[in-house]
Structure formats: structure tokens, C-alpha cells
Simulated scan of single mutants.
Amino acid sequence: MIRVAVVATLLAAGTLAAGCSGSSHSGPVASAHTGATQSTRGGETSCKDFLSSDKAGKESIIETYLRSTGQSTDRSSTTTTRLSAEAFCRTSGKNKLVRDITTG
């Protein structure tokens, strides 16, 4: 139950951060160790693959996920969502997908 509260808190912080910023990051997507297939899968990336990615790979996965859901990909949104996904994946198990951070 505590894990759910932590994830919910992180998601709320991500929503707040996304709502506070009006800019959108449109820079190149870097993916050093994740490979093109993981970064292009975005929210369909498994937690296992997400957690095994380096920071640049995780950012790429999250940016792809945010774009696919119509959300801002500015730095604060990407960072907050990446941290939420990391917390979710570590607490909910590696069988989930990155997109599951919104539904649990």
C-alpha cells in the first residue's frame, strides 16, 4: 500500500510539473545502450528493459511515451516522468510496461 502511495505522489508531481511548463523539448533523441527498438516502443517498453537502460536511454523511452500520449516533453516533464517510471518499475515488478505508470 505504501508503494502505491509513493507512485501516486510521484505521478502527481509529474502532472504538476507538466502543467507548469509551456515549452516543449524538440531536440534529438539520444539512445546509447537501449537500441532503436526500445526507445521507439516508448510506453510499450517493459520495466525490465527500462531499468536496464542507461539514463539517456530512459529519457528517450520517456520522451517517446510522452509524445505518444500528447504530453509535453520538456525537461521537467521528462525527468519527473522518468523518476516516476523508475520508482514504479522498481516497486511493481519488472513484468509491467512503462505506460502502466498511469494505471498501476
Rank of each mutant, 00 (worst) to 15 (best):
A12S: 11
A13R: 07
A13L: 06
G14N: 03
T15W: 07
L16K: 09
A17Y: 14
A18D: 11
A18H: 10
G19L: 14
G19N: 13
C20Q: 15
C20E: 15
S21P: 00
S21A: 12
S21W: 06
S23Y: 14
S24L: 11
P28E: 12
P28D: 11
P28G: 07
V29A: 09
A30D: 03
A30N: 05
A30Q: 06
S31N: 11
S31M: 11
H33I: 05
H33A: 11
T34A: 15
T34K: 09
G35Y: 05
T37G: 01
Q38I: 14
S39T: 15
S39N: 13
T40F: 10
T40N: 15
R41I: 00
R41K: 12
G43M: 02
T45H: 03
C47Q: 02
D49C: 07
D49K: 13
D49N: 14
D49V: 01
F50K: 00
L51A: 06
L51Q: 05
L51N: 02
S52V: 05
S52M: 08
S53T: 14
S53W: 10
D54E: 12
K55W: 02
K55N: 13
A56M: 13
A56Y: 07
G57S: 07
K58R: 15
K58W: 07
E59Q: 11
S60A: 15
I61A: 09
I61P: 01
I61G: 04
I62M: 09
I62D: 03
E63P: 02
E63R: 15
T64L: 06
T64V: 05
Y65Q: 03
L66F: 10
S68T: 04
T69W: 01
G70H: 04
G70V: 00
T73D: 08
T73L: 10
D74R: 12
R75I: 13
S76L: 10
S76M: 04
S77W: 08
T78N: 02
T78I: 10
T78W: 00
T79D: 01
T79A: 02
T80F: 09
T80Q: 06
T80W: 03
T81N: 15
R82A: 13
R82V: 06
L83S: 05
A85V: 05
E86D: 11
F88W: 09
F88L: 03
